[in-house]
């Protein structure tokens, strides 16, 4: 993320460094994608296996589909506002704040969901079946995406205010951040689709 200092040492042009950083981020996205794949695979697997009817035991219930999509909405807003900010540098400051605020709001909402999840069977302390367990894992992964996204968005806001987002030189840096914002939105949508339609 601070490749312009590497630029001084290694004498590489910004667009070369940009290409390199974008590839690096995309490879890390592949790793994160494998993690998300592992979660969704597990969700399908446990749902279809439904061992001892324990996917959703008697008395347990699914969370409403809307709950999942409410988490995804800030991710989509953040990805879109960042894309707009990339193309509309005059309003970059405002749009980067929109990105940050939507991610922070999403972080809070996801934390609120986790803190108040209605799944634990209180007398035994054991989760209500494997659906509830999978929901916890997916929510945790979303939380990780929100936190990392918020970190990047906060950095962009701060740097924009310090006039460090040079409109010509650092397009690549915004595109690199945009790759991550787009990915976490896609990941959120994939998880929400899974929890909405596979029941």
């Amino acid at each position: 993320m601070s490749a312009d200092t590497q630029f001084h040492i290694h004498h590489d042009a910004p667009e070369v460094v940009g290409r390199r950083e974008r590839l690096g981020v995309r490879l890390l996205i592949v790793a994160d994608g494998a993690f998300v794949f592992g979660m969704i695979f597990s969700y399908f697997y446990l749902r279809n296996l439904n061992a001892n009817g324990g996917w959703l035991p008697k008395g347990a219930h699914y969370l409403s589909a809307g709950t999942g999509w409410l988490v995804v909405a800030p991710l989509i807003i953040a990805a879109l506002s960042h894309r707009m900010a990339e193309k509309n540098r005059d309003n970059f400051n405002v749009l980067s704040v929109v990105t940050l605020v939507s991610l922070l709001a999403g972080t809070y909402y996801q934390w609120h969901q986790l803190a108040n999840m209605p799944f634990i069977v209180h007398d035994t302390g054991i989760f209500e079946g494997s659906y509830a367990s999978m929901w916890l894992l997916i929510a945790g992964a979303n939380m990780f995406h929100f936190l990392l996204g918020s970190f990047i968005a906060l950095g962009l806001v701060v740097r924009a205010r310090r006039v460090q987002i040079d409109p010509i030189l650092q397009t690549w840096r915004l595109r690199t951040a945009g790759s991550w914002f787009t990915w976490i939105a896609i990941s959120g949508i994939a998880c929400a689709l899974t929890t909405t339609f596979v029941r």
Partner: peptide, 29 residues
């Protein structure tokens, strides 16, 4: 390796948070 990480996080949650990813009695496998 991330898929291995998923399995380890599940193991950690089963060990600490009473989830049931691998407990067949409660829908795990």
């Amino acid at each position: 390796f991330p898929t291995f990480m998923v399995s380890m996080i599940m193991t950690a949650l089963d060990r600490t948070a009473n989830t049931t990813y691998f407990d067949a009695q409660f829908g795990g496998s």
